[in-house]
Design a protein around this nucleic acid. Structure first.
Lengths: 251, 251
DNA sequence: CGCGACCAGATCGTATACGATTTCAGATAC
DNA sequence: GTATCTGAAATCGTATACGATCTGGTCGCG
């Protein structure tokens, strides 16, 4: 019957809601409640939540429960920075194996992006942006790196529907930089050069966002945006995957 | 009573065994059996296994079970390459915030490594190597990147007790490169320069291993040498976390 | 002798049940 | 009015139970 297990069902169910924003950061995920909605027992739901935890989409506290991961202001920065790193590298690694056909498609997508500039739709633009970059990094031969890129994108999706909605001029610049990157690849530029170009492209978006934010809410003090819920940076002792790696690190 | 939950107990139990090699790649992980050994029920064990799966340490097949992840030859290459990327970056990011004290400690550890060269102990050397690099990247302000570095190291630990046991001359070179990196940092070199130096350092180890292997089993055929680097991007079908990200990628 | 049906044991997937822990409202003392 | 205590409700953690699925081997048939 069910081609997929109930834990997978639960995973998708929750994941979907996090992705499209129905479950906002901080939203409390109650096992029993989700289980009832799906008409399954709590056991598979637990498993799904744990998986989401390992992916960093939700945080978990023993005997307390799970909630959609909150993002501190710095979280956005760090995710974006990491994405710049891995996506840049993936693009560099892919460059060699891209066919003229790939580049053609990339150009075509970028053109579509350019055309949306006048009648700007942030969501649409972000979609095309992903499509563009996907063409350039999907042939990356290192599956680990590729996986990290995907995770980065997914994480970004949760953080902001679109960075571009926040920074007016950035979209146009972005399109120009895209063109430049495609050109570099076409010329058979050095892998490292391509990598760094792709990295800077993303870093530039990040900088633009930060600059824009700084400019548009400087009157309040620095602590302003910090308070959603959790003030104390609790030592992630036992819970998530991230912490688990520390353990073995004692030397 | 128990300061930690049983799933965590189970997680550590299995993790430990994978790390130290008692569970070799391919080893079959049977829920019931592990549960009996720990004197708990299967439920927490399941959770632990799923977590290990999300970390890529075990593979799982529905209705069949889990086994310690097998490593194809290319797996080593990809992991090492990824580690080179993130560790290099982390080192670059940390450089700015390292105190003279840090550098002093790094030098001291490197000296210890140098002294072990005569009476070479691969395991010990690898330990010191981790300690050395840890000093240089632990102050990395981006927790995501730092986490990736830790994961990379942990993964390496599973793949090879030590790369150095395979390549005679490499250890000595490694020590020299360490000295060079510390020097760069001390001189306040550019972040990017430091990053790339650290990256090359690791890439060099990788190359050395590959060259050594190629040289020591070349009689087979030409394919052996080229095999490591293969573009064929196998479609990561369904199983693990990696796949989970693809789904949302449709576009 | 080879091949496919069939059966039994092993193992997984999930439901249900219940004790343990946390949270929070309301009462009480100061 | 504020702080602290208390108990019930909510929720989590795990054990147990049982049906579903897979695996491996045996038997019968061609």
């Amino acid at each position: 019957m069910s081609a997929q297990s109930k834990s997978q069902q639960a995973y998708r169910f929750v994941r979907e809601r996090i992705d499209d924003g129905r479950y906002v950061p901080g939203y409390r995920l109650v096992l029993g409640q989700i289980a009832r909605e799906l008409d399954v027992s709590v056991v598979p739901v637990r498993e799904a939540i744990r998986r989401l935890e390992a992916e960093g989409l939700v945080t978990y506290e023993r005997n307390v429960g799970a909630q959609v991961a909150l993002v501190k202001e710095t979280e956005y920065l760090h995710t974006m920075q990491t994405l710049a790193l891995v996506e840049g590298y993936a693009t560099g690694l892919s460059a060699g194996s891209l066919t003229p056909g790939h580049l053609e498609r990339a150009r075509e997508v970028n053109e579509r992006m350019r055309r949306t500039l006048d009648d700007f739709d942030p969501h649409r633009f972000t979609e095309l942006n992903l499509e563009f970059h996907s063409i350039l990094f999907e042939t990356c031969p290192n599956p680990h790196v590729l996986d990290l890129v995907h995770r980065g994108w997914n994480r970004m999706r949760v953080l902001r529907d679109s960075s571009f909605s926040f920074v007016p001029g950035r979209a146009r610049e972005s399109v120009e930089e895209h063109a430049r990157i495609v050109e570099l690849i076409e010329q058979g530029a050095d892998e490292l050069e391509i990598e760094l170009a792709a990295r800077r492209h993303r870093t530039a978006t990040l900088d633009a966002v930060l600059a824009y934010q700084a400019q548009h809410k400087p009157p309040t003090d620095a602590a302003s945006a910090s308070a959603p819920i959790r003030p104390v940076p609790e030592p992630g002792d036992d819970a998530a995957a991230s912490a688990s790696n520390q353990e073995a690190q004692t030397a």
